[in-house]
Design a protein around this nucleic acid. Structure first.
Length: 175
DNA sequence: TGAGTGATCGTA
DNA sequence: ACGATCACTCAC
């Protein structure tokens, strides 16, 4: 058994994720998220993302320091950072950049499901996926089939508290 | 437009 | 121990 028998040849590899979050977030648009749930495999195109960029970005959880919750953000690109918000909704983030440079992409929308809390419910994703590495995981990864959708950008949602970082156009969505 | 929800983290 | 906070969603 060789490596290619285990992994899809189209799976995005490490060098896709270790770039700056402002490159990775728009590049994830149109990629196919493949996820195994209890009873079946799901495949959905990513249609909306948001970039959270390092300790300086006051909207980024890492700006409050390195804690147990944010630890995954400090790992190398490709790892999953999950967190619970409002006691109800799990947020799915893909870590980007090099180790110890805390950045992540919040996946906000899929082709058939809009909303970061709704899509994790659809995919049955919760803390169970915290720290999972999308470059090697047997149950979740992203694929590139060559599609490069046109997209637009705008302000991030729900970060009005973030001072000068509030208005950064770091939300990306398929036109 | 506002209530619900509970893990997390700073303060004590 | 306690209270404030929160990258949201749904019902009203």
């Amino acid at each position: 058994m060789n490596e290619h028998a285990l992994f899809s040849p189209a799976r995005l590899e490490r060098n896709f994720y270790t770039r700056d979050v402002l490159e990775v977030a728009p590049d994830l648009l149109g990629k196919i998220l493949v996820c195994k749930t209890a009873d079946r495999w799901l495949r959905f195109r990513i249609t909306e993302t948001e970039a959270y960029r390092g300790a300086a970005d006051l909207a980024c959880h890492a700006s409050k320091g390195r804690t147990q919750r944010t630890e995954a953000m400090f790992l190398q690109g490709g790892v999953i950072y999950m967190y619970l918000i409002y006691g109800t909704y799990w947020m799915f983030n893909v870590v980007t950049g090099e180790k110890d440079n805390p950045q992540a992409v919040l996946v906000r929308g899929l082709e058939n499901t809009y909303g970061p809390g709704r899509l994790t419910r659809l995919l049955h994703m919760d803390k169970n996926f915290y720290g999972e590495d999308m470059t090697v995981s047997p149950r979740i990864w992203a694929e590139d089939d060559g599609l490069r959708p046109a997209f637009r950008s705008g302000k991030r949602i729900g970060v009005d508290y973030a001072g000068e970082w509030r208005d950064k156009p770091w939300r990306f969505f398929v036109a």
